[in-house]
Amino acid sequence: MSIEIHQKSAQWSGIDLEAIAEAAGRATFGRLGLDADDVSLAILATDDAEIAELNAEFRGKPAATNVLSWPATDLAAPEPGGLPALPQPDVFGEIELGDVAISYETCAREAGAAGKPMSEHVTHLIVHGLLHLLGYDHIRDPDAALMQGREVEILGKLGIDDPYWVRDGA
């Protein structure tokens, strides 16, 4: 697996993003039956200011967000709740997935609000971004249910609790 990490914010220096991305990638690709060694992608580790600019430019939403993704190929299923197509290797046997951007401040804020370790929340968001690169989405309800289910399965294999589970009274 080739993960090119571009650290644009010094705040990420306390996080082993390379190890987190490697574990998240292997778990995600393994769950979907892909050979992780064939996959390449890039991760931009940035801050709220830059991710807000990217969000405005690419989604028309001028606000910070936790994670953004740019798939190299549209793999989305045409029917709601359908499984995305699996990416196909190029002539060299490589699968170029695309790019993910993740914002430190938003991740830290969300992890604190949820009472979760930063590393677990970052792992969740990288899995989330990778699934977007692989054609998963959460715009339509059936697609959201499928994507959320995959996230929970993958995170469970990494020893991370269901990030969507809310305790009664919480």
Rank of each mutant, 00 (worst) to 15 (best):
S9Q: 05
G25R: 03
L32P: 12
E18Q: 12
H128C: 13
G169N: 04
V122L: 09
T46V: 09
Y164L: 07
A108L: 01
V122E: 03
E53C: 09
G112Y: 01
W12C: 12
L155T: 06
I102A: 03
P89D: 13
I3S: 13
D16I: 12
P80T: 12
I51D: 03
A108M: 03
R26D: 11
E153Y: 04
A170T: 06
L32C: 14
E96Q: 09
E94H: 10
W70G: 08
Y104W: 09
E50C: 06
H132Q: 14
L17Q: 01
G33M: 03
L134V: 02
Q148L: 10
P80N: 10
L146E: 02
P78W: 05
P84T: 07
C107P: 01
I126S: 08
S69E: 03
M1V: 10
E57V: 13
P78N: 03
I5M: 07
L32H: 11
S103N: 06
I102R: 00
W70L: 13
I154T: 09
G129D: 08
F29D: 00
Q148R: 15
P87C: 07
L17Y: 01
V127F: 09
Y104D: 00
Y104H: 10
A19P: 09
P142T: 02
K116E: 08
L155P: 08
T123S: 11
H121V: 01
D90W: 02
A24F: 02
L86H: 04
V67L: 08
I126G: 03
A21D: 03
S69D: 14
G33S: 07
D99L: 13
R31Q: 13
A72D: 11
L75T: 09
R167M: 15
E53I: 04
L75V: 05
A114I: 00
F29T: 03
E110T: 05
Y136T: 02
G135T: 02
E22H: 10
T46H: 10
G25W: 03
I160Q: 00
P142S: 00
H121N: 08
E18N: 11
L155N: 08
Q88A: 15
S69T: 10
D16Q: 06
D137K: 06
A145S: 07
A145E: 13
S119A: 15
K61V: 15
A42H: 06
Y136M: 04
A42F: 08
L97P: 15
D47W: 05
D99R: 10
I160K: 00
E110C: 02
A114P: 00
A10P: 15
A10L: 11
I5H: 04
A10I: 09
W165P: 00
L158C: 05
A24Y: 04
G159W: 01
P78I: 02
L97R: 14
D143S: 05
L86C: 05
H132A: 14
E50A: 10
